[in-house]
Amino acid sequence: MRKFVIAAAVALGLAATPQIAKAAGGVDVPSQSWAFEGVFGTIDIPAAQRGLQVYKEVCASCHGLSLMAYRNLAQIGFSEEEIKALAADYTVMDGPNDDGEMFERAAIPSDRFVSPYANEQEARAINNGAYPVDLSLIIKARADGANYLYALLTGYREEAPEGVDLMPGMYYNEYYGGNQIAMPQPLYDDFVEYSDGTQATVSQMAKDVTYFLKFAAEPSHDERKQMGIKVIIFLLVFTGLAYASMKKIWADVKK
């Protein structure tokens, strides 16, 4: 009985955490099914590759991904040559050289993703005061991040509902806190052309870019779960043995 109460108390305490998240975020977002869910879940590699394309062709014009290096893309199946070529499309500031001057050079795999703006002030100046956040950690930095991002990207409505006064330069989004968002709808059907023949619908692109950003937020995701399974199996055996040992040792103690 006592044990049950304590277990219940701990469980209650744990269960309260998502409530807190809810209380902070406000809006409920619908849940999608994701390949990385669950104990055996992994990042969907083809989706993440398509997601990179969406990021590059759509998001990257405003949003940085400053914690990711080009070399990280090897983990979602890009070859060294592809990564080199991809990096070389970007220019980074390096230096100073022997003359004391900064110079530009093509990015290499060990560089971090080049951000579209030099700093937050420049980003705000160009975007009417709004700051397009860095997307490196966006999935971890929002409650229920993957579902939230998908909902946000697919949550734009042409017209605000009756009675909602949109402020100038704002757009209506069902899932953004307060419903008014400074980012215009980023995705439209067939905005990008996938090389693997996948139909680039808005929801497809939203899903793909979410996979990519899930990977970006936690490149160790797959490794973590795979190691976890081994650790749990080991511990189950160890704990079982310890239990049997304990029973044997305690057998001679009279209650």
């Binding site: 080991f234 055996v237 160890f238 043995l241 310890a242 049997a244 040992s245 044997k248 040792i249």
Partner: peptide
């Protein structure tokens, strides 16, 4: 054996 196995696992 049982205790040895436990210790070894540990």
């Amino acid at each position: 054996f049982l205790h040895l196995a436990t210790a070894a696992m540990g």
